[in-house]
């Protein structure tokens, strides 16, 4: 098993660290899956922990100037690592002005992802900072736990409103209630609702548009709402953690079962699943 990669371009580096920051906000620990062409950050929470799952996919070619990996075997040319994304975020935080960042899988005392940052200095040679991030190597028999989730058979799929607006609405609602009802129809309308003994609040979004999925239910009434009640903290976390301004954001609602969010930013896609509360 080998892995080494290098980022030289500052814009790529900043973009990469924004992605990592977003991941770090969403997951305490996650799985990093490396393939020849892609990196994946995967979280599959057990139902007991709220059952949230995340799938983030990036093309290595858009970030890295060098990227070499060698999986466990030629026919399984992949690497699965468990790590604390916050560590990676921290390592990249002070690398904003780096000349180069190298990431390498090492195994000195324990398996580590070594992030070596080359910084400009006043001296003749650059200053080198290394961060050894402990990782767990996930054996092949467990790989099946981290398969890409399939897009659920949703009732309604809808584009999300401006995330900043949605974020501030959800943040206020979080002060008032623990759960939120998210409902939408095929007429481009979405409502966020909370209701408690003290107050009921509904925010109405319209003209959002519905993505043209080929398999979507054609016979569904345009006005009829599909709804799910979810943990408001999970939704708030997703919205607050957004450091990458997605070019496309949408959500799929499976009535009373799950809400599936997809955020796309050119070469990065983030999927987030929040199960409905009973």
């Amino acid at each position: 098993m080998r892995f080494r990669a290098k980022i030289v371009d500052l814009a790529c580096l900043n973009h990469f660290s924004r992605v990592i920051n977003t991941i770090a906000k969403l997951a305490k620990t996650c799985t990093l899956r490396l393939t020849v062409s892609k990196l994946y950050f995967i979280l599959s929470d057990k139902v007991a922990n709220g059952g949230v799952s995340m799938w983030c996919e990036l093309c290595q070619g858009n970030f890295f100037d060098e990227f070499q990996m060698e999986g466990v075997a030629a026919e399984h040319n992949e690497i699965y690592l468990e790590l604390v994304p916050e560590n990676l975020a921290r390592a990249l935080k002070t690398a904003q002005s780096a000349k180069a960042v190298k990431i390498k899988l090492t195994n000195k005392h324990c398996p580590c992802l070594r992030v070596a940052v080359e910084l400009p200095s006043l001296s003749s040679s650059s200053r080198i900072v290394t961060h050894d991030i402990p990782v767990g190597v996930i054996p092949r028999r467990l790989w099946n736990d981290f398969r890409e989730p399939s897009v659920p058979d949703f009732d309604v799929s809808i584009y999300l409103p401006v995330l900043k607006t949605m974020k501030s609405v959800v943040e206020r609602m979080k002060n008032l209630s623990n759960s939120i009802v998210i409902e939408a129809n095929l007429n481009g309308e979405m409502n966020l609702k909370i209701e408690t003994d003290l107050v009921s609040v509904t925010t109405h979004f319209k003209d959002l548009g519905n993505p043209p999925w080929s398999n979507s239910a054609q016979d569904r009434d345009l006005e009829s709402m599909a709804e799910a009640r979810i943990d408001i903290k999970k939704l708030q976390q997703l919205l607050a953690g957004q450091q990458v301004n997605p070019t496309k954001a949408l959500c799929n609602i499976v009535s009373k079962r799950i809400v599936h969010f997809i955020l796309l930013h050119e070469d990065v896609s983030l999927q987030y699943f929040i199960p409905a509360l009973a």
Partner: peptide, 12 residues
């Protein structure tokens, strides 16, 4: 109402 988005609140 802000930017076409409407919120309705009922406070006891």
């Amino acid at each position: 109402e802000e930017g076409g988005v409407v919120t309705v609140c009922k406070i006891n």
